[in-house]
Amino acid sequence: MIEWIESVLALTLQVGTVYLLASLGEIYAERSGILNLGLEGIMIMGAASSFIFTLAYGHLAAITVSIIVGVLMSLILALMAVYMRLNQTVAGLALTMLGLGLSGFLASPEVRKVILLALNPSLPEKFLAIQEAPKLPEIPVPTLSEIPVIGCFFRQNALVYFSYAAAPLMWFILFKTRPGLSLRSVGENPAAADAMGVSVFKVRCVATMVSGGFAGLAGAYLFLGFQPFWQEGLTAGKGFIALSLVILSTWNPLRALLGAYLFGGVEVIQYRLQLFGLGALSPYLLAMLPYLVAIAALVAVSIGSVRKRIGAPASLGIPYSREE
């Protein structure tokens, strides 16, 4: 029994980390007033680039590159949503489509081969055609990892440990420091923030880049740390689930930590029910669970009394311009 609980818990952590990393960055973007609907596309680009770069240069390079790719992609959104004042929904959607299309194109066997040979001409032949990459190694923490049940928290890979530290750190920066205050003020009342000498454009641009970097990292984690087997459309809406998680967490990084593991748990329950034979009839119906739970979460936070207490960033989705 304990072994079973441990394995469910470990898997929940691993799935939850995808959501956690993606939503931590998104919280910053939305707190500054930018809805980054490109999350899904950035994540899959992060996954695709980590796939290609792991084969060519190894894990560290892959993770670095996927963060850089995420930041670059989010710069497109920043340019369109912050400076061009275009509709953020449409711009983010375009970015998602770009990510899905570009990742499918670049990581397809034909194109991937060309890229891999350009990156590393001495790459052995067998790496050119494979669909999988080596998984990130688990690094057990001495003694802590031997505790029953909760020991699995300390038998994870480096990115999971990073996410443990990132959530409280991101919370601290957002709520307890001056830059965090500027960020929140820009999302609440950009005109007032501007009058106080905060550069609205710069803050929003940086916040969007943070969300892009984290989304790229989430993609890299999803591929390298959880499911190191490439297929087109690998993220399967995980970016959108992370977006609803941001709302469920009421734009708070610490609550996102809990919410991420909740969503991770829902997904793991779905796998487990399939194993138990409950889903033997239709794994497809069980696979709907994460999406339905995400919708239910959105409905739950929209119910009147809850809504008054949480308060979304007042200027979320509204472009800022000094003239209007």
């Binding site: 375009a94 489509m97 770009l98 990510g99 899905l100 299309g101 570009l102 990742s103 499918g104 194109f105 397809s108 087109e232």
Partner: peptide, 9 residues
Amino acid sequence: AAVQMIQAV
């Protein structure tokens, strides 16, 4: 997937 990419661009 090139078509998807072209559409997005």
